[in-house]
Design a protein around this nucleic acid. Structure first.
Length: 856
RNA sequence: GCCGAUGUGGCGGAAUGGCAGACGCAACGGACUUAAAAUCCGUUGGGCCGUAAAAGGCCCGUGCCGGUUCGAGUCCGGCCAUCGGCACCA
């Protein structure tokens, strides 16, 4: 017997068949407004996957988890009469292709093309209903032209705090617009990764090591392009509110943005002043010393002669430390006295000024007031260096007041004595403001986005550097839109230079832009392309605009709230992609290019899939599951259904080949419900399938299945939807091979099954149609069925009888039975009578159609 | 350390405050078969009582301790464990 015959049903024949039919007919193409076939009466539904980086390793089983979920919803929504936008593309700039180029000399574009082809064929094999006419690739010059164009929008605008939005730079009236551009150049202490030969964003550094590769990262000052995302901190925070996202992800973003409310307070020192930020201005009377970040610019101006050497030495030592060392050594506080003193504005006392690396230059003002009595870190520092500790907050409970950081009552603070902390904060802030010593302030942890990379395989900046008339300085100038795209030059050698100068600098001819101007040689980070790809999907061929106005309005606008209707992807992008994309979206919205202020209305995170050993899948563990192997053995429909049957979409769960087999058995049972294998080994429609009316029982289960599957798709509970369909099939399997199988129930079932197992459903639909005449067309074009609630109602229900909450018996009763009838019947029940004999019934609780509970 | 998520049979999981374990896997028993595969049927949380065997009966059970309730996997309080995020952010 050939292995062909062993297949539980001929998925190896029907799956390629239907995939090519879908391809030929282009039935998943969603027409844009104005295009042929566009139906304005249909509501839109935009359902998006996080597009993949096409790595050389190909698809793993984690990718199709989210993709299957969205595919089910897409197919379902189409059958519900929506115009569904369901696209796919490639986030193809990135390090692996570049590193392969360094090793092999093969141009990254070539590697990318190969990998894309592989990914695409793998996705097609699973039968996803993408509109492939909308396929995009971030490394295509027709795409990154517009990424560069968006950079120009950022460069040519500023954030007006008065209007709280971005405006064209020409509306900025002061002298130097370069100080306020949303894209600007700064010499900043960056995360330099010598191994990768590039700088990294804060978000790309994990535990002092690069997220990619795990190489050490050090701090180093460099001239870099930055994006002023901090201007949007408040809006990025506030506008999370209305989004239908998992609370956990919202919280991650909130924490990342890190809003703190407090006050800025000035401490005088001779004719200068040091400004600090504090969330607890009510503790200012307890400030017994100050600390500046070692890199703080005032340090040079205040340090005394005696302390100068010690300070210089300390600064050098901290500068050499990598981030990793800084955190590792965080256990022990270090610092040096500057020799200088400041005046505490509340007490008018002279307090010493120190420098210490536990104060960070990048947060607040880079300086703090040390309140050892009510701050853990300050306490540790004060104890180590023997600085005075003064209690100014009295705890309400019996806690130790020293080291107490909660809210209490202000003491030893004449202006606010006796006030609870909240009120004390309000009053002291007002007091400081009145005297010009400080003011209320809000601080964010969020930093500006470091936007340049010293790499080859990325979008070049549409920027040139021109010599100033003095011949010494050079100044950046953005290119005109008409000069886009800026295409990177070909190189023989893609290696990083190691000096921090980008590889593009090696292409001397390309770098030379004109007599007096050279090109920017940095490239944009990988995030750039994914910041707006969902917009390009709306109108991917447009060569006049990054997205056509009408298409944008239709797919991203619409009635409240607009945007992508469902976005599915992994949690790993909680603070990177999802924050960056929101930022760009808001800028483009402010500049009038978009309809709505938020890109992704509903977000769902799929959980990761573990190996069979319950461990994270990895090459080294050898527990990786390859989708191709699964499809080879069980077919795409079984693969899809198993991915959904494993458990709730959001949950982490282990793979099980046995589980795939179980789901495959279910599909085979559904197949054999309608198909028979004849003597010749060919499958033909079973004679049991007949144009008869379903029995009452069959009707009931059919409608219960419609109800359950419909509701479960809406809530993305695909595992229970599949359970219900299994129940359906089990119920229809003829017990003695004699019962007729009503074709109407089968049709309904196939429509419900179609989003999950579209190949199988299509094939059976077609086979039924050959004999019984279908309503017409493919199953994909059918209307989703409605259910009839009245068919679900039973005449009789089983009533549970409990005594003190414990089930003691069950009885059949009409659903029309009144509470009184139920109670009487329960008490008359012989078994219950026996159990309650001789005891007083104190109370009975009756739940109609469910139970009677007798309390004794 | 702080924040968040999760904890249910041998396993994945299911249960608007109302019969815990749907559906599936695995296991065991049976049918078909020369045999196997495939398929089909049945049993399957634990303990105890009962019986020749059944039927049947009782008790315990959703991480742990407590509470609310006629009734808790579900609600409330406290703890423990695992996973994820942040981490000197003043």
């Amino acid at each position: 017997m050939s292995s062909e015959r062993r297949k539980p049903y001929p998925f190896d024949r029907i799956e390629p068949k239907w995939q090519s039919i879908w391809d030929e007919r282009q039935i998943f193409h969603a027409p844009n407004p104005g295009e042929k076939g566009f139906d304005p009466a249909k509501p839109k539904f935009y359902i998006l996957d996080m597009f993949p980086y096409p790595s050389g390793a190909g698809l793993h089983v984690g990718h199709p988890e989210g993709y299957t979920a969205t595919d089910i919803v897409a197919r379902y929504k189409r059958m519900r009469g929506f115009n569904v936008l369901h696209p796919m593309g490639w986030d193809a700039f990135g390090l692996p292709a570049e590193q392969y180029a360094i090793k092999s000399g093969q141009h990254p574009a070539l590697t990318t093309r190969e990998n894309v082809a592989k990914f695409k064929s793998q996705l097609k094999r699973i039968g996803f209903s993408y509109d492939w006419q909308r396929e995009i690739n971030t490394t295509d010059s027709r795409y990154y032209k517009w990424t560069q164009w968006i950079f120009l929008q950022l460069y040519n605008s500023w954030f007006n705090p008065k209007t709280n939005k971005a405006e064209p730079i020409k509306t900025y009236r002061s002298k130097n617009p370069d100080e306020v551009r949303l894209a600007y150049v700064a010499d900043v202490a960056v995360n330099w990764c010598p191994e990768l030969g590039t700088v990294l964003a804060n978000e790309e550094v994990v535990d002092g090591k690069s997220e990619v590769g795990g190489f050490p990262v050090v701090r180093r000052p460099m001239r870099q392009w930055m994006l002023r995302i901090t201007a949007y901190a408040e809006r990025l925070l506030n506008e999370l509110e209305g989004l239908d996202w998992p609370e956990g992800i919202k919280l991650l973003q909130r924490n990342w943005i890190g809003r703190s409310e407090g006050a800025e307070v000035d401490f005088k020192i001779d004719n200068k002043k040091i400004r600090v930020f504090t969330t607890r201005p009510d503790t200012v009377y307890g400030a017994t010393y100050m600390v500046l970040a070692p890199e703080h610019s005032l340090v040079d101006l205040i340090v005394t002669e005696e302390q100068w050497l010690a300070v210089r030495e300390y600064r050098e030592r901290t500068a050499r430390k990598s981030d990793l060392e800084r955190t590792e050594l965080a256990k022990e506080k270090t610092g040096v006295f500057t020799g200088a003193y400041a005046i505490n504005p509340a007490t008018n006392e002279k307090i010493p000024i120190w420098i210490a690396d536990y104060v960070l230059l990048g947060y607040g003002t880079g300086a703090i007031m040390g309140v050892p009595a009510h701050d853990e870190r300050d306490l540790e520092f004060a104890r180590k260096f023997d600085l005075p500790i003064r209690q100014v907050v009295q705890p309400l409970g019996g806690e130790d007041p020293i080291g107490f950081i909660g809210e209490g009552i202000a003491i030893n603070s004449p202006v606010i004595d006796g006030l609870p902390s909240r009120e004390a904060i309000r009053k002291i802030t007002q007091w400081l403001e009145e005297r010009g010593l400080g003011k209320g302030a809000i601080n964010y942890k969020l930093r500006d986005w470091l936007f340049s990379r010293q790499r080859y395989w990325g979008e070049p900046f549409p920027v040139v550097w021109e010599s100033e008339p003095d011949g010494l300085h050079r100044h950046h100038r953005a290119l005109d839109e008409s000069e886009l795209p800026v295409v990177p030059p070909p190189l023989d050698d893609y290696k990083p230079t190691g000096t921090g100068e980008p590889p593009l600098a090696k292409a001397k001819d390309w770098v030379r832009y004109s007599e007096k101007a050279t090109r920017e040689t940095n490239v944009m980070p990988q995030w750039a392309g994914s910041c707006w790809y969902y917009l390009r999907f709306c109108d991917p061929q447009n060569d006049k605009r990054f997205v056509g106005e009408k298409a944008e309005k239709y797919w991203m606008g619409g009635n409240k709230p607009g945007g992508v209707d469902l976005y599915v992807g992994g949690t790993e992008h909680a603070v990177l992609h999802l924050l960056y994309a929101r930022f760009w979206h808001k800028v483009l919205f402010d500049l009038g290019h978009l309809s709505k202020p938020e890109p992704f209305q509903r977000l769902v995170n799929q959980g990761i899939i573990l190996g069979e050993d319950n461990q994270k899948m990895s090459k080294s563990r050898g527990n990786i599951v390859n989708p191709d192997d699964v499809i080879e053995q069980y077919g795409a429909d079984a693969f899809r259904c198993y991915e959904m049957f494993m458990g709730p979409l959001e949950q982490m769960k282990p793979w099980s080949m046995r589980g795939v087999e179980g789901v495959s058995r279910f599909l085979a049972r559904a197949w054999r419900l309608m198909m028979n294998e004849n003597q010749a080994g060919a499958w033909e429609l079973s004679a049991a399938v007949q144009a008869v009316d379903p029995t009452k029982e069959q009707q009931k289960i059919t409608h219960a299945t419609i109800k359950k599957v419909t509701g479960d798709i809406e809530t993305l509970s695909f595992n229970t939807a599949i359970s219900q369909m299994m129940i359906f099939v089990n119920a229809f399997i003829p017990q003695r091979g004699t019962e007729a199988i009503p074709v109407s129930a089968m049709r309904t079932f196939l429509v419900l099954l179609n989003p999950f197992a579209p190949h199988l459903a299509s094939e059976l639909w077609e086979t039924l149609g050959a004999k019984f005449k279908n309503a017409g067309g493919d199953i994909t074009e059918q209307k989703w069925p409605d259910y009839d609630e009245s068919l679900l109602i039973e005449d009789e229900v089983e009533i549970v009888v409990q005594i003190n909450g414990k089930v003691r018996d069950r009885m059949k009763m009409s659903i029309l039975a009144s509470e009184e009838e139920m109670k009487v019947a329960a008490l008359a029940n012989p078994k219950i009578q026996q159990l309650i004999a001789g005891q007083t019934v104190r109370k009975t609780v009756t739940v109609p159609k469910k139970l009677v509970n007798i309390v004794i």
